[in-house]
């Protein structure tokens, strides 16, 4: 608060800074109004609910820290957290790498850029529900295209979504298919890298690989960081595809955290416990995001 006070005082003294500051606040008014009206209250209420027993149909009963204590001893919570962490921490980096590689390739002045971009991006436009149907069809053990193609080369494909060993991996593969979503963001960023920088690097004798690491990656690092963080935030909350394709099975192999939370809140009518699960998830994601921001602080290049 002390720094805030000082910053405020410093800004106020200079007309230029004061104008900037006032514009900054003015520009945030619509968002902040929306936040205060629609989001802040419900979030605070759900935080309070996490300290209650609430079956939705009857008023909540405060129970102190009981939900949080129960959560630590809940083996399925740990199982779902493990599944989610594996899914997230494997699929997000892979997705970022593949998406970035695609963007780099498309940034080589290839012929028919927009056609290529379409080819790689279009899977990311397919609605989750549709791609859930599509993948449960493609990866069907008996009749799916993937196993039929494998069969043609005499490989007996696994049971994919139906196998406790493969189900989670199949979701990771499915997530790779939409790497084009990141690609389009990287491409936009790559096209924003000033050509002059490449020229300078060439003059310095840097080869393509060195230019990539010295110029391209640092200059596009905000986009990379963004996709990585958004990927982590999103994949820790994966729900729809799992809900539609496996509903957590077989034998809890794809029981994801939010699916488990959903079950508690809406199927078992333990909304207090579900809220506690949600706020623990919040802490986890927040911690991971904070960590990636801290680590990236030194690595990410911004225009300042």
């Amino acid at each position: 608060m002390l720094t805030f006070h000082r910053q405020w005082r410093d800004s106020w003294r200079s007309k230029l800074l004061r104008d900037e500051m006032l514009f900054g606040y003015a520009a945030l008014i619509p968002y902040l109004a929306g936040f205060l009206i629609f989001v802040a209250g419900p979030l605070a209420y759900s935080l309070w609910l996490s300290f209650t027993q609430y079956n939705i149909l009857q008023p909540p009963v405060p129970v102190g820290l009981d939900n949080y204590k129960a959560l630590i001893e809940d083996p399925l919570m740990w199982k779902s957290l493990e599944n989610t962490a594996v899914y997230s921490l494997v699929s997000v980096p892979l997705q970022v790498i593949l998406g970035y590689a695609l963007a780099l390739m498309l940034n080589q002045q290839v012929k028919g850029l927009s056609a290529w971009r379409t080819v790689y991006y279009v899977p990311a436009v397919v609605p989750i529900v549709a791609s859930a149907y599509l993948f449960s069809y493609l990866f069907n053990a008996d009749t799916g295209l993937v196993n039929l193609l494998l069969k043609m080369v005499r490989i007996s494909g696994p049971n994919w979504f139906g196998s406790p060993d493969w189900a989670l991996r199949t979701f990771i593969i499915m997530n790779l298919w939409v790497s084009g979503g990141g690609m389009i963001v990287y491409l936009a960023a790559l096209q924003g890298v000033p050509t002059a920088l490449y020229d300078a690097a060439k003059i310095d004798g840097a080869n393509a690989w060195q230019r990539l690491w010295a110029v391209t990656v640092p200059m596009t690092s905000p986009a990379l960081l963004f996709m990585f963080m958004i990927g982590i935030i999103g994949s820790f909350q994966v729900f729809t595809s799992v809900f539609i394709i496996t509903s957590g099975g077989p034998v809890n192999a794809t029981l994801m955290y939010v699916l488990y939370l959903y079950r508690h809140g809406w199927s078992y009518l333990q909304m207090g416990y579900a809220s506690a699960l949600a706020w623990v998830l919040f802490a986890i994601i927040f911690g991971l995001t904070y960590l990636s921001l801290r680590v990236s602080g030194r690595l990410v290049h911004y225009e300042v």
Binding site: Y137, N140, A141, D142, T143, G144, G162
Partner: peptide, 11 residues
């Protein structure tokens, strides 16, 4: 009878 995966094969 079809196993877990096969049961889903036919919408």
């Amino acid at each position: 009878a079809p196993d877990l995966g096969a049961a889903q094969a036919f919408k």
